[in-house]
Design a protein around this nucleic acid. Structure first.
Lengths: 219, 219
DNA sequence: CAGCAGACTATACGATCGTATCTTTTTATG
DNA sequence: CATAAAAAGATACGATCGTATAGTCTGCTG
């Protein structure tokens, strides 16, 4: 029996079209929208258009379903993010100022397009517990380290001011992600959904004015 | 019967020591920490050290308890905030730069000391529904308007760069509030709770470097 | 064909949830 | 004191939740 003969698991891949993956995608949606406590097996099953018992067959309990959903969301995130970062490198690669602008804009657009991991992160951060501890060990330590590295790289290339990297990371993240987090409120208060190119361009432009020593006009 | 004779409701005031207020305070805690779905009448009763049936006696259903809790939290917020803003006016009132720094620092400290309204806000913003609509109509429209007014006032006094006021409000709010929101994560990743004066001073200092045309040093 | 493992389904159990109803205790006032 | 309202407590009901278990269907392999 040759080694190549052994049965291929067909599609044990992550994002195949099996019902298990369908459930994962649905569960990620429901968890992100309804929170952990607001999510039930029945709701996930209905969202995935499968029977409740099938959900429990693939995931032995609710915590397991949640963990697998988080893994799924982070994988989707890490697959999608590079595509956005590439865009910012394609356009006008010689102007440093424009490069930072494009980078921030793409990150903001990415966050609008992939809000799940942000919601899941803040859900757990607002109610610290075992699930947050797990996320910290599994994802956030690496995320923090990666984010800091990106900031420091940009600082070496004189793209960003050379202030404390972790503070700058949190300030920039806040300036961008906060907009996404309050978007549902802004939409209802201002009557305009911030997730459109005009709003994003203006917001990024304002942020750039602050970042690069402020021409202090361009209202 | 003189008009002054009619019975005073004794202490129908908001923050009296009646059991109703005790329940409100407990409910605000539990709602902010566990979310709407994660909060039960029994948990609130236990937190307030009263019987479950008493909670239901004072608040006819869960939505009513939640609304009253939100009102209570916002009232506490609006009573506390001015005290923080006063502090920033007492110290070194002649230097504009120092004034903005003190203002931001006090707002950040206020947010650390009163995280409930932030948590409740983002909880509902991440799962838009009837409760968010109610909050928008009851609080956020006014909050947005007040916040924008503060920014514009600071701009008129040349305390802040004259960029789009609403964008600046969201950028500054993000730079400050994001720090509080991710604080539980930062604490676990960095091993240091950001809610201390050193961390806050450094963070504010970094933010000031960006705001005022970046001396771009002071690491 | 026999058989077996994996995928899927049906059903049930105990716990808890939000709510409703009823009784008891406390308080205020004539 | 009498009494009525308010405050507080006891109990129960239907629904839903997470979980457990037993059964059915399908496709492969010996």
């Amino acid at each position: 029996m040759k080694a190549a003969d052994q049965k291929l698991p067909i599609t044990t891949n992550e994002d195949d079209f099996s019902r298990r993956s369908k459930i994962l995608a649905a569960a990620a949606d429901v968890f992100a929208q309804q929170g952990f406590d607001g999510t039930s097996f029945g709701a996930v099953a209905k969202a995935a258009d499968v029977k409740k018992s099938l959900v429990q067959y693939h995931f032995k309990n609710k915590d397991n379903l949640w963990q697998e959903s988080i893994h799924w969301v982070w994988k989707q995130r890490d697959q999608a993010l590079p595509k956005y970062l590439q865009k910012s490198h394609l356009n006008e690669d010689n102007d440093n100022s424009q490069m930072v602008r494009e980078l921030c804009k793409q990150i903001l657009q990415f966050t609008f397009d992939h809000p799940q991991w942000i919601k899941l992160m803040f859900q757990e951060a607002s109610t610290p517990g075992p699930r947050l501890d797990w996320m910290v060990a599994t994802f956030f330590k690496k995320d923090f380290s990666d984010g800091k590295a990106v900031i420091e790289l940009a600082q070496q290339q004189n793209l960003l001011p050379k202030v404390n990297a972790m503070d700058l990371l949190h300030i920039l993240s806040g300036a961008l992600i906060y907009l996404v987090n309050v978007a549902p409120i802004s939409e209802r208060v201002l009557g305009e959904n911030p997730n459109n190119e005009q709003y994003i361009d203006r917001h990024i432009n304002t942020l750039m004015c602050l970042l690069q020593g402020a021409p202090q006009n361009s209202r």
